[in-house]
Design a protein around this nucleic acid. Structure first.
Ligand SMILES: [Mn+2]
Ligand SMILES: [Mn+2]
Ligand SMILES: [Mn+2]
Ligand SMILES: [Mn+2]
Lengths: 218, 218
DNA sequence: ACCTATTTTTCGTCTTGGCTAAAAATATTA
DNA sequence: TAATATTTTTAGCCAAGACGAAAAATAGGT
């Protein structure tokens, strides 16, 4: 059984590995976890001793299969609890993350398998992120950022990259949620801004918005 | 926001106050928490500094209203989660306590009020223990131990004093659960053992069993 | 190749919540 | 009341996980 701190480090490193593809640096981990590099060094040495990641001084960290499995398990729990909060307790998708940060550390195989079943074995969390199965495998789907679409292309919103409250509330205001169809009416190459159509509404969005919305194109 | 350790101490002291009616001794707390008296002294001094209990050296501890409120809040969460596990996730009543010990420390007012609502605002947990309301008030009901009944008296099982797995599984084997009607056929004064009728079955129970089953007589 | 800036590690320290051993206070019993 | 037993507290120590300051390694620029 791993401690709360260990689980959080593994989770952060797992996410950073996805994003950066390769060794994860001490500073990157410190940034992500809002902690100091010296603390990170201590912890990755400890995790290396436990064979949860491989680490050579000054060379960054890489999860071992075991470390990856632990991390995926924590992420699985986080996302299942988020589904629970939204689907069963009627929470809004911008309110669930902080609570799931706590719930993800409850240790019980049986609890999580029963919860999974209770929720109907969902594949995605309320933000469109895939839920790892009990072995830690994730069903990766084809998705791109809205910002990658060109004029006249269509996409269906399948997820968000950021899930800050501010961003999610912006999306709500614009009536964009998972499953919403989006048509790119125009794209400005100078600043990456777009004009899009959502339902009957047409409006302007900044590059920053377009870079944080995942869409699927068929 | 209080730490996991602080919450567990407050909860233990709360329960000991109920049982013993009066100041709670250092040793009693240490026993209940499977820790050492010296550790208890440290913690109760810390809790006294925070005004969660009153404490004079060598005189034991008594929760302040604030301390009692925190403790009742933790117990409320514990019991609501137990209801969730049994009612929604089909756990057996002997499996839920350990998991609830973890879930009770998740901090979110909104989570617990939504959970309460989702469960239909239950008054009792799966072991028959009353669930405090959001202000920490408990609906106390008239109940006595089965061992207090005399020959020919009837009672309805409304709770268990112990909820160890062994005991609960024993009760299952004997088809006794919350709501079961029990008739005392005989009582041996020498050792406190009884012969009781449950449904169509008649059988012998030891004093230890009778002292851990709460019944209501009408 | 050398100097400098950046990143990472090391070292000493802090807080929380444990522990043991010894001292002090209280309770019991002769 | 005095001696003894029990309970409680104090004092010193430990491990986890954080921190800042200083040292070491690496990366970049010339
Ligand atoms: Mn989340
Ligand atoms: Mn999510
Ligand atoms: Mn319980
Ligand atoms: Mn219970």
């Amino acid at each position: 059984m791993y401690s709360l701190a260990e689980e959080n480090y593994l989770k952060a490193i797992y996410h950073l590995e996805q994003e950066a593809k390769g060794e994860v640096s001490t500073n990157a981990i410190a940034d992500r976890m809002a902690t100091k590099p010296s603390s990170v060094t201590d912890m990755i040495q400890k995790l290396a001793d436990k064979k949860l990641l491989s680490y050579k001084r000054y060379k960054g960290a890489l999860l071992t299969p075991e470390g990856r499995k632990i991390a995926a398990g924590v992420i699985r729990k986080h996302r299942l609890w988020e589904v629970f909060l939204v689907e069963k307790l009627d929470f809004h998708w911008d309110e669930v993350h902080e609570i799931a940060e706590q719930l993800e550390h409850v240790h019980s195989e049986k609890l999580i398998s029963r919860l999974d079943q209770f929720l109907g074995n969902p594949d995605f969390d309320p933000h469109g992120d895939p839920i790892p199965d009990k072995h830690g495998n994730i069903k990766r789907t084809e998705k791109k950022l809205l910002s990658e679409l060109d004029k006249k292309q269509r996409g269906v919103c399948v997820g968000v990259k950021e899930s800050s409250s501010d961003f999610l509330q912006y999306l709500d205001k614009k009536k964009i949620t998972i499953g919403t169809k989006i048509l790119v009416l125009g794209k400005e190459f100078f600043d990456g801004s777009m004009v899009i159509q959502v339902g009957r509404d047409q409006f302007f969005i900044s590059k920053k918005i377009a870079e944080n919305l995942y869409v699927q194109t068929n």
